[in-house]
Amino acid sequence: MTDRISEPLAVGDVVADQTYWITREHLVRYAGASGDFNPIHWNDRVAEAVGLPGVLAHGMLTMALAGRLLTDWTGDPAAVIEYGVRFARPVVVPDDDTGIAVRVAASVTAVRDDGVVALEINVRAGEQKVLTQARALARPPAADGPVESDA
């Protein structure tokens, strides 16, 4: 169901832009799925005792959401060759039903001769950048990449 026009990708193109919501329920689920039971991700008492502004999202959960943006774009996790982030600011998750919005946008910083695309990923909670130096190398979806005919 792709109606993407197969124009070549150019530096500066925003290939994906999405907002994800993180609630306390997500933190509990992520803790169980990942095996990261650090109490600062679910226990207000502990978070406060160690001087944090509140219960924080796992950095790896925020990284996973930004990663999801990449794999939504490529369609295939195997198309992601390299992916790295710096956890610049904590994402404080309130104890309510709404949670906190994390906005993720990926833009092209380079297109290599072999078709691999370098991406810069902008990850914000409100006005704050929560991940910095978020970068990936990925093979673009077929419609965006060079057509490979002879292998």
């Binding site: 992520y30 959960l61 996790p77 195997a78």
Partner: peptide
């Protein structure tokens, strides 16, 4: 847990369409 509905993470047939032998994991 990461809210990702991509079928390649749960359906073998979807993963095979992408050239994988079985279901693959998120990065």
């Amino acid at each position: 847990a990461i809210g990702d509905p991509n079928p390649v993470y749960v359906e073998t047939s979807a993963a095979r369409e992408r050239g994988h032998t079985d279901v693959v994991a998120p990065p």
